[in-house]
Design a protein around this nucleic acid. Structure first.
Lengths: 239, 239
DNA sequence: CTAGAAGTGTTATGGCTCATAACAAACAGG
DNA sequence: CCTGTTTGTTATGAGCCATAACACTTCTAG
């Protein structure tokens, strides 16, 4: 346990680079072919290798898929967090808008990866024990929760449009997110999920092309109004 | 053009029955395997046939997929319409709740088919010219529009939470849905899509298992509150 | 410096699926 | 009963996943 390799060796670096190249190539092919179904043959061909060589880096397609899911989940989270951090700490309205827009933009630019983490589980893929699949949901919630905690701390978290909460939801909030106790009231916890659902709905429909029948300007305006409505309904200040 | 076969022959009937059995088997396998990726081999095995026989009924996998998508779109529409018709004509609140619940229940019971029409377009599948893929969106909109038209006719369509509408959205409403002119104002048209986005978001997250971390009662309560919030925000009476 | 070990790539192979071709059996109408 | 259509079969080829066996490169220890 002493003297662990703090500095990666040359081999470790080249191996890591190859792993990254494989994943990047897979993502590129996913974009080009508009599918989450990646063929080892194609990845290898693009990389100038033969298919079996990929098995030195990933045991099978599921393992590659798991890595891609983990990456996607991380990248979506990072995109949202970065956008959020770009606004002042006390600009709650701006932070909600920025985070929501980042969520939407990432989904539109990477619809396959978005589907990978928040769509129907991929053919044949089974999420590993406590895997990152559902963690995307948890993380999205955590980022939203941070927004609500901050708004509450600033005393700017308004009452949601729907102030009633069922005992089950209140209990769920207390059990699953005890860190919010005394800070974000149950009705705001519920409203938080409402806001996320609205954001996720408009994003999904948009990312999968179901608003293609309307013009770009109208679609942008629709998204903006949806986010604004969600904020109003959730008690997020809209300034 | 005279004397077209109004009565299907025996052959036509058996053929249609086989087509239905193929589709039903495909749907069954989709459910059992939790995937939209259906293998001709499996369908044939379940039906006691050999794989090439299926090509007598569908030219290739895409054609079967197209048929399944068309069916799914029809069935979702029918499920929602049936639920809606189960309520009195003037029970606007009940109709919204019933329609939304049917939408969610169908998605939960048939997540693969739901993903087929409203998720990421399937690997390799290209929607035929004016195909039914995006029609699911149009149909969902039409059913919602009917609800709003009826509410407006009864004078019970309230002002939405967000009364402002961008010129682009107003123009889009006028161009794409001229039948609503003078009946459903632009801000309510916009609110209608907001309501659908919220419904679709909560439904997608639920159907794909992203609320599995909460108990069944909490999930039900969450759905009910979300639908109620959406109604309030859209100006649908909640009684 | 030089084996031997570890790592990384290749070709060869088996099993599975999609899809077509060629052929056989069942069926409808004169 | 006979003939053409429909519907099924077996045979076959191409492509992909995955493994096995083998070859080359790179690191490391003596």
């Amino acid at each position: 346990m002493t003297e662990v390799a703090v500095v990666p060796t040359r081999r470790e670096r080249t191996r890591a680079a190859t792993v990254e190249e494989i994943k990047a190539t897979a993502r590129q092919l996913m974009r080009e072919q508009s599918t989450t179904d990646v063929r080892f043959t194609d990845i290898a061909r693009v990389m100038g290798m033969t298919p079996p060589a990929l098995y030195r880096y990933f045991a099978d397609r599921d393992e590659l898929l798991t890595a891609l899911i983990a990456d996607a989940y991380t990248e979506l989270g990072r995109a949202v967090a970065t956008a959020r951090e770009g606004r002042e700490h006390d600009d709650v309205a701006g932070r909600w808008l920025a985070a929501a827009t980042a969520y939407r933009d990432w989904a539109r630019s990477e619809p396959q990866q978005f589907a990978l983490i928040l769509g129907l589980p991929v053919p044949g893929y089974v999420a590993p024990e406590d895997g990152p699949t559902h963690e995307a949901a948890r993380d999205a919630m955590a980022q939203l929760a941070d927004l609500f905690v901050r708004a509450a701390g600033l005393g700017r978290l308004g009452q949601p449009l729907l102030p009633e909460v069922s005992p089950e939801m209140a209990a769920c909030a207390h059990e699953k997110h005890p860190e919010l106790d005394g800070i974000v009231p149950p009705e705001s916890f519920q409203a938080m999920i409402h806001a996320w659902a609205t954001l996720h709905g408009i994003t999904s429909l948009d990312a999968y092309g179901h608003f293609d029948w309307m013009g770009d300007e109208a679609r942008e305006a629709l998204f903006a109004s949806t986010i604004r409505m969600a904020a109003m309904a959730a008690g997020i200040p809209t300034d």
